[in-house]
Measured scan of single mutants.
Amino acid sequence: MLDDRARMEAAKKEKVEQILAEFQLQEEDLKKVMRRMQKEMDRGLRLETHEEASVKMLPTYVRSTPEGSEVGDFLSLDLGGTNFRVMLVKVGEGEEGQWSVKTKHQMYSIPEDAMTGTAEMLFDYISECISDFLDKHQMKHKKLPLGFTFSFPVRHEDIDKGILLNWTKGFKASGAEGNNVVGLLRDAIKRRGDFEMDVVAMVNDTVATMISCYYEDHQCEVGMIVGTGCNACYMEEMQNVELVEGDEGRMCVNTEWGAFGDSGELDEFLLEYDRLVDESSANPGQQLYEKLIGGKYMGELVRLVLLRLVDENLLFHGEASEQLRTRGAFETRFVSQVESDTGDRKQIYNILSTLGLRPSTTDCDIVRRACESVSTRAAHMCSAGLAGVINRMRESRSEDVMRITVGVDGSVYKLHPSFKERFHASVRRLTPSCEITFIESEEGSGRGAALVSAVACKKACMLGQ
C-alpha cells in the first residue's frame, strides 16, 4: 500500500517536472537572447534605426563620474514606483581627507489618484512632500541643488532636461508624456511658492545606482535594477552614441532593455503563462523582457503555473481556492519566502493557508518547484541581457580580458534567497573573457542622484555659470 502511494507521488512529481521543464533555458538559448539583445542595442544607438529599435539606448548626458572633490548639501528625489523618497545628502571631506556622503531620508507613498490623475496632481503632491521634508529638517530658507531620480523612459536633451516617452509600472498621470519632466517639477514648486529649489540633474535609477557604486569602486561602469521592473545602464564610447554629437570619451546610456521583445525577438521563448500575464497587464505587448524578470510579474506567473497544475490534477487534489483564482493573489514576496523555507515546509504551508488552501507535504514541495522554475528562468533571462552589455563593452574597448564592476539594486536581487547566485553564475558562463565584480548599492537611487548633481554643480562652477 505504502509502495503504491510512494509510486503515485513519484509519478505525480515526474509529471510536474515535465510541465515545469518549459521554463528551462539551455545555454544556447541564452546565447541567442544575448546576441539578439546586442543587435537591438546597436539599432538603438544608431541614428537611422533608433526610432524602430525596441531597446532605445537613451543617452543620459552623464559623462563624468564623481571624483571626490564636490562638497555641499544636496536634496535628492526618487520616483520610480508607488513609494517616493526625499533625501538630504551631505557631501563633504571625511576623516583623513576621505570623501564622505551622509544621508537623511523619508519615504512617502503615492496615492492612487496622483498616479493615475493628471501630471499637475502628481507633481503638486511631490512638491508637497518636499515642503514637508524641508519643514522637518528646518531647511526651507536654503535654496538647495536638487537631483531627481526618475525611473521611467526619458529622452534627455541635457542633464536637466528630459522628455517622458511613456509611463510604465502602473503610472498613468495624463499630460506628462511628451513633456519635460524637470519643467513639470519646477512648475509645481513655483505653484507652491513656499520654498526654492535648483533642479540641476535628472537621472534614471540605473544611472543613480551606477554612480553610487562608483563611489565604492571606481571600476563600476554598469548599473542595473532588478526590482519591480528590470533595466540597466553602462558607459558607452561616445563615438557609438549617434544621437549625441561628439566622439570623445564616454557617456552613460540608459538601455531601457525592459522593452526588448516588443518587436518579436522573444516570441519563441514566451510561454502561455507569459501571454496571460501580458494580456492582463496595463501595457499589453510592451516591456516583454521586463515581464519575464521583474517583481511586478513574478508572483503572478507562479500563480498561473499553480492553476495549470491544479487543472492537471497534480496539486491540491485538483481544487483551487477562490483566493488562488484571484489575479495578483500570489505576491512576489511569497516566491522569495517559499524558496527561503528551511525544509520543514512550515513557511510554505503558512503562505498557502493564507490563500485558503490546506496543502499536503507533496503540495508544498511542488509549489516550491514552481517558484524555483519561474525565478530561475528570470535570473537566466536577466543574465543574457547583462552578458550582452558586458561583452559589447569588452569588444568596443578591444580588451582581451576586461575587469568590470556592476552596481545592482532592486528588491528581487536583494531579497530573493537564490536569485543573485543563479544570476551571477549564468552571467559568468556567458562572459568567459571578463572578470566581473557585483556590488549592491546602498540607498543607491538617492545618493547617486545627489552625486550626479554634485558633478553638475562642479561643472557649472568651472564653466562660470
Rank of each mutant, 00 (worst) to 15 (best):
V222H: 01
E112I: 08
I436Y: 02
P153I: 04
F195Y: 15
A329K: 05
M57C: 06
G249M: 02
K291R: 04
L306I: 03
G343I: 04
L315K: 00
E14V: 12
E40F: 01
S353C: 02
T206C: 12
V154G: 02
K172S: 14
D344V: 03
M210P: 03
L386A: 09
D409Q: 06
L122E: 06
F316I: 02
P59D: 07
R422A: 12
L134C: 11
G175L: 11
Q26K: 04
I351H: 01
D278P: 01
G81E: 09
D311F: 08
N231S: 13
M251T: 15
M251I: 15
L270P: 01
L75Q: 01
A378T: 03
A173R: 10
D73V: 01
E265Q: 00
S212N: 04
P66M: 06
S100V: 14
G223A: 14
A176Q: 13
G80N: 09
G183V: 10
P417F: 04
L324I: 14
L243A: 07
G81F: 04
Q323G: 13
G68H: 10
L20H: 00
M107V: 11
V181I: 12
G170V: 15
K136M: 06
S127W: 07
R85I: 11
F330W: 12
R403G: 07
Q24K: 15
D113I: 12
C457F: 14
T361E: 09
R394S: 04
W167H: 15
K56S: 09
S441N: 06
I390S: 02
M57P: 02
E319I: 14
K296S: 11
A460M: 12
V277S: 05
G246V: 03
K32H: 05
L463A: 14
A232G: 02
R5F: 06
L122W: 07
I19Q: 02
K414E: 03
G285A: 10
I130T: 03
V200Q: 06
M462N: 13
S453D: 11
L352E: 00
F419D: 00
K169T: 11
T116C: 14
N254M: 14
V207E: 02
G343Y: 02
G464C: 07
P153M: 08
G264F: 03
E40Y: 01
Y297W: 15
H141L: 10
G464E: 07
N83C: 08
S398H: 13
F438N: 09
A119I: 06
M202E: 08
L122M: 06
Y413F: 05
A449E: 07
R46S: 12
P284C: 15
H105D: 14
V33G: 01
D113P: 14
L75G: 02
K31L: 07
E216V: 10
F74K: 05
L270Q: 08
D344P: 02
S375E: 13
R275E: 06
G72L: 01
L415G: 12
F148N: 03
V181R: 05
K172L: 14
R303T: 01
F438M: 03
D187M: 00
E67W: 13
R422Y: 14
E435A: 09
A454C: 12
E331W: 08
L2P: 13
Y273T: 04
R192Y: 02
S441F: 03
H317P: 07
K12R: 12
S353K: 09
E28W: 07
L45E: 02
R35G: 15
V401L: 07
A21D: 15
C220S: 03
P432W: 08
G178D: 10
R368Y: 13
R333H: 06
N391P: 00
Q106E: 13
I404H: 01
L45P: 00
V310T: 08
M393E: 01
S340V: 08
G285D: 09
V338G: 04
I126K: 01
A449L: 06
K169C: 08
T326F: 09
S411A: 10
N83H: 10
K291G: 04
L243K: 12
M462T: 11
E48T: 05
N166Y: 12
K172G: 10
M462V: 05
D365P: 00
D73A: 03
L288W: 11
V33L: 07
R403Y: 13
R422N: 15
D198L: 03
E395P: 02
T82N: 10
E395S: 10
F150H: 02
K291P: 00
R403N: 07
R308N: 04
V33Y: 00
T326V: 14
E442D: 09
L270V: 15
V200H: 08
R7Y: 14
V338L: 04
Y297K: 12
E312K: 07
R368K: 04
R394P: 00
E443F: 03
K414A: 06
D341H: 11
G162D: 12
L271N: 08
L144R: 05
T103L: 08
E300K: 01
F334C: 09
F260E: 00
R397C: 12
N180C: 15
E157S: 09
V408F: 05
T65L: 15
E256W: 05
E17I: 15
S263D: 14
L144V: 12
S383C: 03
S340N: 04
A378E: 02
F195R: 06
H156I: 04
L134H: 02
Q337D: 05
S383M: 01
T116L: 07
V101H: 10
L185I: 11
F133C: 02
G356K: 03
R333E: 12
R7K: 15
R358A: 11
D274F: 00
A21G: 15
L45G: 00
A114P: 04
T431A: 15
R155G: 08
A10W: 07
E245D: 15
V253A: 03
G343H: 10
L463S: 14
S453H: 09
Q286V: 15
G285K: 10
T354R: 05
P111I: 02
C434P: 01
G147N: 11
D274A: 00
D113W: 13
M57V: 02
N83K: 07
D194G: 09
E70A: 11
Q98F: 05
V199I: 06
G294S: 12
I366Y: 13
L292W: 03
M235R: 01
C220H: 02
Q286P: 03
G147C: 04
L463M: 13
F330H: 01
V182T: 09
T116Y: 11
H218E: 12
E67H: 05
G229W: 04
A456W: 07
S373T: 11
I351N: 04
G446C: 15
K90H: 05
L79S: 05
L304W: 08
R7G: 14
M87Q: 06
T362S: 09
L30R: 12
E67D: 09
V182G: 08
L307P: 01
K32N: 10
R63S: 14
K140H: 05
I390K: 01
R397I: 04
V86W: 03
T116Q: 15
R7L: 08
I225S: 11
R392N: 10
D247P: 03
R368L: 12
M251R: 01
V374E: 01
L463H: 06
E399A: 12
S174Q: 06
T437L: 08
V181H: 11
